[in-house]
Design a protein around this nucleic acid. Structure first.
Length: 199
DNA sequence: AATTTTCTCAACCGCCTTGTG
DNA sequence: ACACAAGGCGGTTGAGAAAAT
């Protein structure tokens, strides 16, 4: 790791919503060079973003195998089961839901499930058995190192299953057909532009 | 039709862990 | 063994969209 703070760059670091152009740069760069070493990636790609920001953008939004759209009842059930088991270990839970990101699951939990827990009247049929885990969310940072290390099934990794009819650059899983097209304006455009720009 | 309220989601922040020199 | 930097994770917030009044 290079320990250079990269001098004045920091003052130029952009924040806030990503532009389409930035998305394209990031996608294009990763398509050609792969992920990893986010700080230098951000620099090399010419993005005035922090490595963290690039990583987040990629993982939560740009990654071609990100599955967007409604959480299915099956997924909801799984989320509740896993949450009951592990608490707020969102990334861990997400690893068992192909194409879903920890951020998405976290949001879903907070907006949908947690709300239902607070209003038992409106509980969906299956959520009755998990009210206990609302208290369990307080696992907070006790996890570090210990608890969640006991990952019985950490081996079963995330197998992208939505890779059909896609146009992805070589070596890339394809963009997923999503249930809701809200974000597709950018993703489709970006991916096709990325293809045009090629390598 | 206009305004207000509620909901959803993308992104940032701070802390912790891990890796490297 | 220690210090530093980067990566990763969970919590929180703000903006925009949708729904309700």
């Amino acid at each position: 790791m290079d320990k250079k703070p990269c001098n004045s760059q920091e003052s130029e670091v952009r924040k806030g919503p990503w532009t389409m152009e930035e998305d394209m740069i990031l996608i294009n760069y990763i398509a050609n060079h792969g992920e990893g070493v986010w700080n230098s990636l951000a620099r090399s790609a010419g993005l005035n973003r922090t490595g963290k920001s690039c990583r987040l953008r990629w993982l939560n939004y740009l990654r071609p195998d990100v599955r967007r759209g409604n959480i299915t009842p099956e997924e909801e059930l799984l989320i509740m089961e896993l949450h009951a088991k592990w608490g707020n270990r969102w990334s861990k839970i997400a690893s068992h839901l192909p194409g879903r990101t920890d951020n998405e699951i976290k949001n879903y939990w907070r907006t949908k499930i947690q709300k239902n827990i607070k209003q038992p009247d409106s509980l969906p049929s299956q959520s009755t058995d998990q009210t206990h885990c609302s208290g369990g969310t307080s696992t907070s940072h006790t996890m570090s190192g210990g608890g969640c290390g006991a990952d019985q099934d950490g081996t079963e990794n995330y197998s992208p299953m939505y890779t059909e009819n896609n146009l992805a650059p070589e070596g890339f899983p394809a963009p997923l057909p999503t249930e809701s097209n809200d974000n597709l304006w950018s993703m489709e455009d970006l991916w096709s532009m990325q293809l045009l720009h090629g390598d």
